[in-house]
Design a protein around this nucleic acid. Structure first.
Length: 886
DNA sequence: CACTCCCGCCAATTA
DNA sequence: TAATTGGCGGGAGTG
């Protein structure tokens, strides 16, 4: 009885939600307002008289029941009509009291009727799947919430997921615009590509998925003992991520990626949760896991409403587990770029703002340990900037998305290939995969995919699009593959490994890659034992993942980058396939690297405004892709198919000769121009002699940072690798030129021969790939970055390279330098060989890895309290960016 | 009891 | 400062 009375009263006292709703609602009387009901509290409170009490009462009055009823009505009736009901509803309320109650009870919507999935369907029903391009449908959150009879909070849940798929985009406060599914396939494609980068390995084989769990935890632990670097204060501290990193939006994209990458197209919730959890440290929280699962359900409900997935159950040893099966499109035809309008919307690159973060790592001599040089600052800006910054008032968020997309695209392009694999390395593979996943943050452009032993890899050149320049410009670059200790350090431990190069190498293997355009280098496990050192691998993986994430995440860029190295564990692959070994042999030589020239050429590279920052780039890319591709030019190129061969050819064409003798600089950035330039660089000189630097063009966003600089700078991600370290890598090749280039024997590259490398065979054999992700962050400009994007798509096909392990070497260049030049700076540290490991790796690992937890259920158990909400570990990782202050 | 996941508190962001 | 967003996790509904 009281309740009723109260209900009546309710109108009088304003409840927080009510006012708004009422006003908005169509003329409903306050009393009636169906909307925003407040929750009911059944039990009367002790102090009815307190203000609070009144509120509660009111709330209770508002009770859910009423809402439900309304909802039902609405649901059942055509949407259009829904509004009408209001009035009646009000009546109902009253009525309800008496007679209706029972009825309600019967019909009571029950939870299902209030489910997010159903709500989403109602929401979707309001808008056409394929709206005419001409019509712009704007969505008012308040309106929708009121019409659907739910609180606004729920609408956010829906919209955020839809936004992640580009079905809607935020235009302004309380305003979203409806795009429909026109771009869905493109978005999915991007996600798929990005997903491959990040998670490809993982999902490669499903069985592994299962394994993953175990491995995840265990392996990591094992592998990484050292790696804990993650925890490094720097990293952690740096991150204060905004919550956005954890956002539903991002989770949604990642979740979708998992499906797209999965062969079976079935993803179990727990696995997804584990993968998506980022963890900072070893400890995993059970609570965190639960929370993740909750979110996944939220996302899954929306995706289900979109008919993209459906619920299924998979039975495993442990029993049946909830899972979801992808029932959406699997193949994404190239789409039409045209379709999307190019809308050059005004957003010139929002990304620019975002600084990229870079990190450096130096490799130390003997071991590959990475330390970070750079300080990482969080790139908060990125996110923060995201909304605020976005220059375009119109749609800040979109930008974000775009960014993501772009990144994704880039990444995808870069690394596209998949590797099938798997023969042998189960454990390793999985780990790697896992690691990689975890590491997503990586800045480095390259994404690595771990390849199991056999796989072949091809190196794929970057997609032309991406690095358009390359074709033209790049004459060649060479990469030296073999690394062995050669020169400088024979003795060093590294050397030892390398010494043979072969043997050791073999195991670890590495990879290489080189896209024609830029350079890439990567390496697999450095250490002699691969096993022992996780570093490389992890790093690689991490990088990849990082990038991917970056791509995914909007803000991302900066943040993530920081973590490049993974220290840990990633175990490199243990075994390498024979093939690898072969390759390894080659490796003896030190790498030389290729590098695009920096300065001179730089213009290209850096240049493009867009290119500058990786982050920016990504973003841009996204836009382009999604929104509009702006970069037509590239697109053309992009179309090109790039095969290694082709690339090679191209490169050849350009000029093999060009390579400067000096090893290092060969610049090739070419391609990048619009893109991010990617480079590889090695410096033999001076103190560094032993070290090589590598830069990837694309660094992960994180890697670069540039924040402030006005410099067009880019951040180049670089990695310094001790020569020794390199040794382990088998080779690097740039696909393109195989033949033309110097005639080097496959493998051999001596350090000396900077110029050329031949890698002919290598490439194929090599297990690893590297992709570059270029990153540049340009904060700057707005520019034109766009181009890259389009190409990217095509690129995707092409590119890809992956490697798995590489990371060891990588470093981030902490600084952003606009040009390669900067790299030099990095060198300084050189004297000591550094290994990256410590530095970021941790993050990487952390990143996907679910804490061992997966492995250990036990561990999960409560830790809740710990974290602060603020920073999610993941974010932290991401964030880490180096700031290069200077 | 396990699985789902609604609900809404309240912090982070924005306006 | 107020409003908007949205992370988060308690705990309720379902089976």
């Amino acid at each position: 009885e009281n309740i009723f009375d109260r209900s009546r009263m309710a109108p009088k006292t304003p409840i927080k939600n009510e006012p708004v709703d009422l006003s908005k609602q169509k003329g409903c009387t306050p009393e009636t307002n169906p909307i925003t009901p407040v929750k009911i509290i059944d039990r009367p409170q002790p102090d009815p008289w307190t203000p609070t009490a009144n509120l509660k009462i009111l709330v209770s009055a508002a009770s859910p029941d009423m809402r439900d009823r309304e909802k039902k009505k609405e649901l059942f009736r055509p949407i259009e009509n829904s509004e009408q009901s209001d009035t009646p509803d009000s009546l109902q309320y009253d009525i309800v009291d008496d007679s209706t109650v029972d009825e309600f009870e019967k019909q009571r919507p029950s939870r299902k009727q209030k489910s997010l999935g159903l709500l989403c369907q109602k929401f979707l029903a309001r808008y056409p799947n394929y709206p005419l391009s001409t019509e712009k449908t704007t969505i008012s959150l308040d309106e929708v919430a009121s019409v659907l009879g739910v609180e606004r909070r729920r609408i956010y849940d829906i919209v955020n997921v839809l936004e992640s798929l580009q079905l809607v985009s935020r235009v302004a406060k309380n305003q979203y615009s409806w795009h429909g599914r026109h771009n869905l396939s493109q978005t999915l494609k991007m996600l798929q590509e990005a997903g491959e980068l990040q998670y490809g390995e993982l999902m490669t084989s499903q069985h592994k998925e299962q394994d993953l769990e175990y491995k995840f935890g265990e392996r990591k632990k094992e592998a990484i003992p050292d790696s804990q670097d993650f925890s490094e204060p720097d990293c952690i501290s740096a991150s204060a991520n905004s919550r956005k990193d954890k956002s539903l939006r991002i989770m949604s994209q990642k979740f979708v990626m998992l499906f797209l990458v999965s062969k079976t197209k079935i993803v179990t919730l727990d696995i997804a949760a584990k993968i998506l959890i980022e963890e900072t440290q070893d400890t995993v929280d059970y609570s965190k896991f639960k929370t993740k699962v909750r979110r996944l359900y939220d996302i899954a409900n929306v995706l289900t409403s979109l008919d993209l997935i459906k619920k299924v159950h998979v039975t495993e040893e442990r029993g049946r587990k909830p899972a979801f099966k992808w029932i959406g499109p699997v193949e994404f035809p190239e789409k039409t770029d045209e379709l999307r309008g190019h809308s050059p919307t005004s957003d010139p690159l929002p990304e620019t703002q975002r600084g990229a973060c870079t990190q450096h790592q130096s490799s130390t001599t003997g071991k590959q340990r990475f330390t970070r040089h750079a300080s990482f600052s969080s790139a908060q800006p990125c996110e923060a900037s995201r909304r605020k910054v976005s220059s375009e008032p119109s749609s800040p968020r979109q930008e974000r998305q775009d960014e993501n997309h772009s990144k994704m695209i880039n990444l995808a392009a870069v690394c596209r290939q998949k590797i099938e694999e798997d023969t042998g390395n189960k454990a390793c593979d999985t780990e790697m995969m896992l690691n990689s996943a975890k590491n997503s943050n990586i800045t480095s452009p390259f994404s690595l995919l771990p390849v199991p032993g056999d796989s072949d890899f091809c190196v794929n050149p970057l997609p032309p699009a991406v690095f358009p320049v390359v074709q033209a410009d790049v004459p060649s670059f060479s990469l030296p593959v073999g690394i062995s200790s050669q020169a400088s350090q024979p003795s060093t431990p590294a050397a030892s490994k390398t010494e043979n190069g072969k043997t050791t190498l073999v195991p670890n293997q590495p990879f290489l890659c080189f896209p024609s355009s830029s350079l890439f280098m990567l390496c697999g496990g450095l250490q002699e034992n691969n096993l022992s050192e996780p570093l490389p691998t992890a790093g690689d993986l991490g990088n990849r993942s990082a990038e991917a994430q970056a791509a995914v995440l909007p803000t991302v860029c900066q943040k993530r980058s920081s973590h490049k190295c993974s220290s840990p564990s990633a175990p490199v692959d243990d075994e390498e396939p024979a093939a690898k070994k072969q390759t390894l042999e080659h490796s003896d030589l030190p790498l030389s690297l290729v590098v695009p020239q920096k300065p001179s050429e730089s213009p290209k590279a850096e240049s493009s405004p867009g290119s500058g920052c990786s982050a920016a780039v990504h973003l841009e890319m996204n836009r382009l892709d999604l929104a509009n591709p702006a970069a037509p030019e590239e697109a053309n190129e992009s179309t090109k198919p790039l095969d290694c061969q082709e690339q090679e050819k191209q490169s050849q064409k350009k000029d093999p000769d060009e390579r400067p003798p000096g090893n290092e600089h060969i610049s090739k950035e070419n391609a990048n121009q619009s893109f991010q330039p990617q480079y590889l660089y090695v410096q033999p000189t001076a103190g560094l002699s032993s070290f090589n630097f590598l830069f990837s063009a694309n660094q992960a966003p994180g890697a670069i940072s540039l924040a402030a600089n006005q410099l067009p700078s880019l951040s180049v991600p670089c990695v310094v690798v001790p020569s020794a370290a390199l040794a382990s890598f088998p080779l690097v090749c740039s696909p393109p030129f195989t033949s033309p280039l110097s005639p080097v024997p496959d493998c051999s590259f001596s350090a000396a021969a900077p110029t050329n490398f031949s890698m002919s065979s290598l490439a194929s054999t090599t297990p690893v790939f590297i992709s570059t992700a270029a990153v540049v962050t340009p904060k700057v400009s707005p520019a034109p970055s766009v181009d890259p994007q389009q190409p990217a798509h095509p690129a995707l096909h092409l590119s890809p390279v992956l490697t798995r392990s590489c990371s060891a070497v990588k470093l981030d260049s902490p600084v952003c330098m606009g040009h390669p030049m900067t790299l030099l700076k990095l060198q300084q540290p050189s004297s000591a060989p550094l290994t990256p490991k410590s530095i970021r790796p941790a993050h990487h690992e952390a990143f996907f890895k679910t804490p061992g937890s997966l492995g250990d259920p036990v561990s999960w158990k409560k830790n809740e309290g710990n974290q602060t909400r603020n920073a999610s570990s993941v974010q932290r990782r991401l964030e880490i960016s180096s700031t290069s202050p200077d």
